[in-house]
């Protein structure tokens, strides 16, 4: 293949990455932005979404699209409930102390991951794509499902954007993010907002996982990479800044996708992780954000 088409293919792969990353990172960013909680278990909510998608699709026989649609609805819902409960049972009791919550979310990480190992087992399992067709470009054919993933992510992000900026719910969230105490004084039930945001953040990760699982297979250890990438995105984008997060997810997803086509993925990860750590040290407000409150 010539370089031009090859780059185009790499860009498409990068866009798929970026789409899923946008959703995952948005969840992490939302939780950090509103609650100031660094959720290390975020990757496990993603994993849980994928594992549930496997189960749901294998229970529902018949048209794979049917099972997939149910999974896309139920998996995030269930993950949201799990997150809601862990927020209520664990994080709230810690008073959202930043360091204690990190330790607690590490604990939650292990609990979710190992429970998946107990029930789902150590093997990677594929989920059938809901539909199968190829889009023929002049140089190569490309999976139509991957293009749908990109489209679905865009739609979901627009939806999230709309909720956050245009609705009363979003206003309440932003008020809580801006100043917890004032929000409380204005009669906002901050506790409820926190639990909802934590659940929503986890649900975003689960949606991303359900979308990707026909391409990547479900595995109990699959949460690590998206967690790292989402961290990178949230830090580069500016902690708690949603616009920055989306911009950074696009940048990182694309470059990661393109990089891994041309270079060793280990090297790419090494370089990007180092750079991000340095950004956090020397430019904590991120490359696109303006606030630094970590």
């Amino acid at each position: 293949m010539d370089f031009g088409p090859f780059l185009f293919l790499a860009t498409l792969e990068g866009l798929v990455q970026a789409a899923v990353l946008c959703l995952t990172a948005l969840g992490l960013s939302l939780v950090f932005g509103v609650m100031r909680v660094v959720n290390v278990a975020h990757g496990e909510f993603y994993m849980l979404g994928a594992v549930l998608a496997y189960w749901i699709t294998s229970w529902i026989s018949g048209n794979p699209a049917m099972g997939f649609a149910v999974a896309l609805l139920l998996a995030p819902l269930f993950v949201g409930v799990v997150a809601y409960l862990s927020e209520k049972i664990i994080l709230r009791r810690l008073g959202y102390d930043p360091e204690a919550t990190i330790v607690a979310t590490i604990g939650i990480l292990y609990i979710l991951q190992q429970t998946a190992l107990l029930t789902f087992g150590p093997d990677a399992r594929p989920v059938e794509p809901p539909l199968y067709f190829r889009v023929e470009f002049p140089w190569f054919g490309y999976s139509g499902y991957k293009l749908i993933v990109i489209a679905a992510a865009v739609i979901l992000l627009l939806l999230a954007w709309f909720v956050i900026t245009r609705t009363r719910l979003g206003l309440i969230m932003r008020a809580t993010q801006f100043d917890r105490e004032t929000a409380q004084n204005y009669g906002i039930a901050v506790d409820r907002v926190y639990a909802m945001v934590f659940a929503a953040g986890a649900a975003f990760a689960a949606i991303a996982a359900v979308l990707i699982v026909p391409i990547q297979q479900a595995h109990y250890l699959m949460g690590g990479d998206p967690l790292l990438l989402a961290f990178i995105v949230v830090i580069i984008g500016g902690l708690g800044s949603i616009r920055g997060t989306l911009l950074a997810a696009l940048l990182i997803g694309l470059s990661d996708g393109i990089f891994s086509v041309f270079f060793s993925p280990t090297l790419a990860k090494m370089v990007s992780t180092t750079l991000v750590a340095l950004v956090l040290v020397f430019k904590p407000e991120g490359l696109f954000g303006h606030r630094s409150r970590l």
């Binding site: 660094v38 830090i235 280990t266 090494m270 180092t274 991000v276 750590a277 956090l280 904590p284």
Partner: peptide
């Protein structure tokens, strides 16, 4: 490098450097 940060940022920065060290060994 890392001691320029405190609290949560220090936790994440050390986490990331450890990740890099692991990747170096694998690489």
């Amino acid at each position: 490098i890392a001691l320029r940060t405190t609290g949560v940022a220090f936790m994440i920065v050390t986490l990331m450097f450890a990740k890099v060290s692991y990747l170096v060994i694998v690489y």
